[in-house]
Design a protein around this nucleic acid. Sequence first.
DNA 1: CCAATAGTTCCACTTTTCTCGAACGGATCG
DNA 2: CGATCCGTTCGAGAAAAGTGGAACTATTGG
Lengths: 121, 121
Amino acid sequence: MPESTRELTHPEPADFVLTDVLFALSDPSRLAIVRQLADGPVETVGCQTLGGEIPKSTRSHYLKTLREAGIIRNIAHGRERLVSLRTDELEARFPGLLASVLAATGSDPSPADPTPLSAIG
Amino acid sequence: MPESTRELTHPEPADFVLTDVLFALSDPSRLAIVRQLADGPVETVGCQTLGGEIPKSTRSHYLKTLREAGIIRNIAHGRERLVSLRTDELEARFPGLLASVLAATGSDPSPADPTPLSAIG
DNA sequence: CCAATAGTTCCACTTTTCTCGAACGGATCG
DNA sequence: CGATCCGTTCGAGAAAAGTGGAACTATTGG
């Protein structure tokens, strides 16, 4: 049986819109998901492992925004879904963009950020 | 006489927040201003030349969002104001980010963009 | 000092986005 | 084929952002 019956729409790289990509990445919760996908040991994970403990509808909306911008791919696989970064396509469309975003440090005001004094002065 | 009496607040590079920068750049109108500053013959221009013919309060709001994110500098100079990109500080804080955004082509759906075919394939 | 100018801030309104419970639909297993 | 599980879509209320007219402040010029 084919691994996809319930397919979601994904834009082609040529249709990626820069402002949409920037907007999708401009939310700390969504950016955290992108970082999790980039930093994680595997590049493709089930949805429920992303974004911590949040309502599944909320997570689904995060993923929708990221998907419609072209940042992630979300494919049906059995009764769950596999999410992965569209790293190569994003790089081809907007060279260096995702890399520079992922390389940025100490910029996401997450609650677990101690903000050491040594990083201020 | 000092060239600044009415000063606006500008964040220091260490206080730049990535998501705020991305958000400020995620609006086509604001991004157009940034492009105008980057592409223009001079890097410092008066406010009224930016963003085309829009109400001055609207333009001021655009500039405020960009300024508070650390993307532009807005300093009083006589009875007008001079706006410039904080290119170097932005580069130091988020290496490659602004460059990749400015390098992106055919992505901003502005009405005045001819989108030449030579830039697509 | 009064008029004109440049641009920010105030305020109100509209639109968008955020958030999450609930309903819905496909996939798997007994 | 009913129960369950995973995740999307729907719907609604709340919060945030966009927009622009009007008032306000600072600066320059006569």
